[in-house]
Amino acid sequence: MSKFHVSTTVNGDSVEYLCDPRETLLDCLRDKLNLTGAKEGCGTGDCGACSVSVDGRLVCSCLMLGVEADGKQIETVEGIADGDVLHPLQQKFIEHAALQCGICTPGILVAAKSLLEKNPNPTEEETRYWLAGNLCRCTGYDKIIRAVMETAEELREAS
């Protein structure tokens, strides 16, 4: 079984890897590029812990093959901060204790960033539905939703 050579861009860096066509983008990010921020919580697209954006579109990296990433622009949790300056969502999540164990946090941050890019003024309901594919078992979502909405408000005021 021959492997495929993939050239792609992750968080602005050009990267290459060889992958079996059965390997998912998540497998490739974690095992070949050592970007372990995206997590595998289910492998079936039901938990969102592996969320990344591909060409600006939010997806589950467990539901995309590594070979499909060729030529794409991929953004992961590792690319959210601007150097040593945290993204406002990251800062707000820490301040609000919007994480307990933190395993869902990378996926939720990627998904929430995608929401705010598309909708700078989401209602609570819109926020909850946008994040419905990101399971969190610790928080009951309360502090997560508050953190996202408060970040949105601050970003609106700042712009």
Binding site: R30, L35, T36, I80, L86, G102, T105, P106, L109
Partner: peptide
């Protein structure tokens, strides 16, 4: 803020499979 906050919002924290 929790001491491990930065690690956990940047993907740096090492969980079991990491």
């Amino acid at each position: 803020n929790r001491p491990d906050g930065l690690d956990k919002v940047t993907g740096r924290a090492k969980f079991g499979a990491d």
